[in-house]
Each structure stands twice: as structure tokens, then as C-alpha cells.
Nucleic acid binder design. Structure first.
Lengths: 263, 263
DNA sequence: GAGCTCTCTTGACATGGATCAAACGGGCGG
DNA sequence: CCGCCCGTTTGATCCATGTCAAGAGAGCTC
């Protein structure tokens, strides 16, 4: 991990030697003309960069740099201007909003390879905070916006991610508005189990993962208190729907059984 | 109203005589080359059609027809294929999701001149239902998708509406997750007061409107029961924050005072 | 390894909103 | 005009979840 950082950080600009002229359609069979930073990146395939060819990746990588942040770091603040967008490469970012008196609600979680940032708005409507340690691939605001204007495929891809986020937000509104505390906690675990490890074999019956959120975060996500979250987790454990070996270490032996608890 | 219907319905195709060749930049000073259906439409200015010039409007109007529905009509069903998009021209459409056991949550309200429909998805993730009597300008799915592919401005406009909807959904998640019943009801009234009448003078201190939703709808929107909604409305009335002359007739004498109740 | 701190868990109690029940009222058909 | 119907309001009670408080476990410093 420590070494990865150096590799990626210094690798970012290296491929600029590449000739950006009209060899746009060449396939990247050998990866030789893909920027180093992109080679191991989730977003390169499933994220927004999946629509870019190697020349475009190279062009984009000129406006790009890896940023590594540890858990708790505030990445953008509600109501404050944002000067860059980002792709989540590793870890989880929470998007929160607060009421005047301090009540807080998590309104979104972003996993690799999600795009981070509110396009076309001068400032952020939410606070973005690293929930776990995260790696971001930061993109300059103007650079990406220019690229979007030139590249309809990219705009389309971002449109699709935005629509997916809207679907997810609406799905979550049902959870917030109509589910019991027990169902909320089950729904949360199910969400994490199915989103956290993109490489997981989807045919597998169960999942093990390290919770990237504290109990407080979970409470803020579900519109509950820490105590209620804790009690419901204990109940799920008592009923053998989950096993918790350490506070953040969750084992779901049977995803389908968990899903049945989601309401 | 009765006559308007006939005018619009038959007017829709009339302007097809217009020459769609390269006079794209002409301004519509006299409205003479704007399709009849579009002339009185909110979406024409503030909605997605605002980015279209008269030639494009004419082209679009070939795939367009006015549809009038009365309150309660189901316009799209969760999980079912959709064959058309629409613009809301008048009235309010509610988007709902249900849990298996019948618990229901409204996940969005669409007012004129909002765009209605989930772009690029084969079927709807939500149920859309006319909350009041509504007029829709229906657009064929394939027709609009083709137009979007050809017209970056239109795609951008729809992207912006989608982003705004996402912002609103997240705003509402705070309401659902963290506000008290009293704050929820106040927030709902505030939302309606500020969204319902697009022509309202924004400098005016108060608002009067006819609630386009039943108490049951309001409850489904707020994640509450009918009884709780009713009680909170009574409380707001007792405290003179609102006046209710008939069940659906609400008078907010001081918007700012209402906003203070929103948490 | 003792003690500190921080997060989490568990218990006891309080309360906001749900549930159950009944009365009210406006619109509509007869 | 009467009476029914359906949506709404209001009241009485219950219960899920919040609040307050104490204890448990894990990591950190000295």
C-alpha cells in the first residue's frame, strides 16, 4: 500500500509523452499507451473513464492527480465552492447534510468507481467526507467540463450515473420513510454487502466485509440513533443473520436471508 | 378549459408544414412558426423545450401529443416498461414506491414544467400517478432519445433537471430521516407553497393555494400516518401559521414564519 | 501492564407518533 | 332536503424508538 502510493502519484504525469494526435481508435491491448494512474483503476472500466479511449485518457490525465485521504477528512463542504471533481478509486465517501441545530443525515455513499461532485454547480449542496481511508482521482473542474462538452459519450455516461444515483436516493427514501429500525439496519447491511466489494463473486451465498462506517455514521444514514443501531445489530446477531467478530468485521452467511429482513 | 383541450389537441400537428431546413437561428418574435401546442406551455420556456428553437420545436412536435388525465390516473407502473416520456404542463404528478406489504412512499412530486420519465431505462423504477388533474405533453421514447442524441443542448438541459431532482431527493432525505412530524408537515407546506404556482410573485410575503394532494398522499410523502398529518395541520392552524378555509384550501400568510417551522 | 479515552453495548425509562375508534362534514344521488 | 359515503378530524391508548445512564471492550500512552 505504501509503495502503491508512490507509484501512482509519480506515474500520473508520465504518459504525457504520448502523441495525442489522431490515433484515437487504437485498442489498448498492451496497455502501453494508457496512463499509469489509470491502469489499476476501477473507474477505468466500470466508471466514467470506461467510455474514453487511450488518447482521451491521456488527455484527461493531464488534469488529473491521485489524492489519498484518511478517514474523517472533509473533502467538500455544504454550501462551499468546489474546485474539482473526483473518481473514487478506493474506500467510501459519505455525503451528508445538516440541519441548523446539528441533526445530521447521510444522503449518499459513494464507492469505487463512483464519480464524486455536483456537475455544473458552483458550490456543493452536500458535505463530502471520507468515511474510510480513500483514494481519489481528482479532476480539475474546468478540465472535465471542457472534456464533457467535447465528448457526448462521456456526458452520457455521467448522465447515466446521475440517473442511477437518483434511483438509489429514491430507493433510500422508502427505507427512511417507511421501514422499521430493524428493516433499516438490515437494508443498510445489505447495501454494503452488495456494494462494497466490486470484485465479489455475485453467485456467492454470503459475504464478509469490514464496515467502513462507525455506528454513528450508520445511525446518520438510517435516521436512527447509535443505540438503536447497536440494538438492532445485536438482534440480527442473536438471530444468526449476521456474525460480528470485531466491531467492524461483519459476516453475512446468507445474503438472501438478510434480504428477507429488509421489508 | 373544455375548449382549450380541442385547440391544443388538434393544433399539435398543424405546424408540420413548416420548412425544417437550415433556418435554425431565426428568433420566434411573432410565434408564427412555433407549434400551437407549445405556445402556451411552461416547458416551452422554463422546461426542457427552452433550449429548442422553433424548427426543433416543430420537429419535436411531430412526436408529441397532449394527454389530459384526471386525478388518480396511473401514468406508469413500478417495474413496467414505459413507451413514452412527458412534460408536465399543468397539475402535479406523484412518484411512488411500495414495499411488498403495501407500505407506500412518495419519492418525488413533479410540477409544471418538469420532465417526466426515467431516461434510458427500459422500465420505470417508480409508479407515476396523477395527484391532481394533469395535462401532459407526451413524447415518444424513441423520438426524444433520437433528438437528445442529436442535440447536446437538450441533453445538457435534461442533465441539469436530473441533477436538480437529485438535489431535491437528498434534501428530502434529511426531512424523512431527521425531522419531527411537525417539521415534516411544515416542510411539505413550504415545498408546495414555493413550487406550485410558478407565476407567483416571489417577493410576496404569503401564498394561497389549493393542496393538490390528499391527507393520505401527504402522509405517504412524509413517512407519517394520516392522523399525524391531520393533527400537525391542526396545530399549525391553531398557532396561526396557516389558515385552512376548506380541506384543500391553504393560506400561508407569512412564508418566512412557516419556514422557521421547517427545522 | 495500568490507566485513559473512545466507541460500542446494554439497561431503564420517557415520549412522539402509530394504532384503534368514534365523530364530523361536505358532496352527491335519490 | 335527506341520508349515505368518503375523507378528515379528534380522542384514547399503545408501542417503537429516543433519551439518559452505566458498564464493557479495544487501542494508546506512559
Amino acid at each position: 500500500m505504501r509503495t502503491l502510493f508512490a507509484t501512482l502519484a509519480f506515474g500520473a504525469g508520465v504518459s504525457d509523452i504520448h502523441d495525442s494526435a489522431m490515433d484515437t481508435n487504437r485498442k489498448d491491448i498492451h496497455n502501453s499507451d494508457i496512463p499509469v494512474l489509470c491502469r489499476s483503476c476501477e473507474a477505468r472500466h466500470k466508471g466514467m473513464c470506461g467510455v474514453l479511449d487511450s488518447a482521451e485518457l491521456v488527455a484527461l490525465s493531464r488534469h488529473t492527480r491521485l489524492a489519498r485521504h484518511s478517514a474523517g477528512k472533509e473533502l467538500a463542504a455544504e454550501g462551499m465552492p468546489v474546485e474539482s471533481y473526483a473518481n473514487v478509486m478506493r474506500g467510501v465517501v459519505k455525503l451528508t447534510k445538516v440541519l441548523e441545530d446539528g441533526r445530521q443525515q447521510i444522503v449518499g455513499l459513494q464507492f469505487a468507481p463512483d464519480f464524486l461532485g455536483r456537475l455544473f454547480a458552483p458550490d456543493s449542496a452536500v458535505t463530502a467526507e471520507a468515511a474510510s481511508d480513500v483514494d481519489l482521482c481528482r479532476l480539475s473542474k474546468s478540465g472535465l467540463e471542457r472534456l464533457i462538452a467535447e465528448n457526448p459519450k462521456l456526458e452520457r455516461r455521467l448522465m447515466e450515473q446521475t440517473l442511477r444515483e437518483l434511483d438509489e436516493a429514491r430507493e433510500w427514501m422508502v427505507t427512511l420513510g417507511r421501514k422499521t429500525a430493524a428493516e433499516k439496519v438490515a437494508s443498510f447491511l445489505y447495501l454494503i454487502a452488495t456494494h462494497l466489494d466490486p470484485s465479489a463473486d455475485s453467485e456467492q451465498k454470503g459475504r464478509k466485509f469490514i464496515l467502513p462506517l462507525t455506528r454513528g455514521d450508520v445511525a446518520d444514514f438510517l435516521g436512527l440513533t447509535i443505540e438503536t443501531v447497536s440494538r438492532q445489530l445485536s438482534r440480527l446477531r442473536a438471530e444468526k443473520v449476521i456474525a460480528i467478530s470485531a466491531v467492524t468485521q461483519v459476516d453475512v452467511p446468507d445474503l438472501e436471508r438478510l434480504r428477507k429482513r429488509c421489508g
